[in-house]
């Protein structure tokens, strides 16, 4: 399953709910305002419940738009551009957009 989240964890519960629902093999992709949630904050609330073998990706162009440097972000993250986004869609089924 590819979860797509588009709101930050402070904007909506979608991301924290998704972290609870994602099991091994699932991928969480953060786009739009959701990329604010990849900035490392203390305590690291939202990703604490993340299970093993669930990968978290962030859409790099959305970080750029918002002036978010990778240095400020969690180190377990993977970054994708739009072609990487397409590859995630190609390699995962189904796709669940969580609004």
């Amino acid at each position: 399953m590819l979860f797509i989240i588009n709101k930050s964890a402070t904007q909506s519960h979608a991301l924290s709910d998704c972290v609870k629902k994602a099991y091994a093999g699932d991928v969480i992709l953060l786009i739009e305002h959701a990329v604010y949630s990849v900035v490392e904050i203390k305590p690291p609330a939202v990703f604490q419940a993340l299970r093993e073998n669930v990968s978290v990706c962030a859409l790099q162009p959305d970080l750029l738009v918002r002036g978010l440097d990778k240095e400020r972000c969690y180190d377990f993250l993977e970054y994708v551009d739009y072609s990487g986004f397409v590859a995630l869609v190609e390699n995962n089924k189904p796709i669940r957009s969580c609004f």
Binding site: N6, I31, E32, H33, L59, P61, D62, D81, Y82, S83, F85, V86, A87, V89, E90
Partner: peptide, 19 residues
Amino acid sequence: HQAADTAWGFIQAAIAAGH
């Protein structure tokens, strides 16, 4: 909302990748 812009970026990349 950003939806139309994100979709646009996605669609351009999908077409470029031969989908």
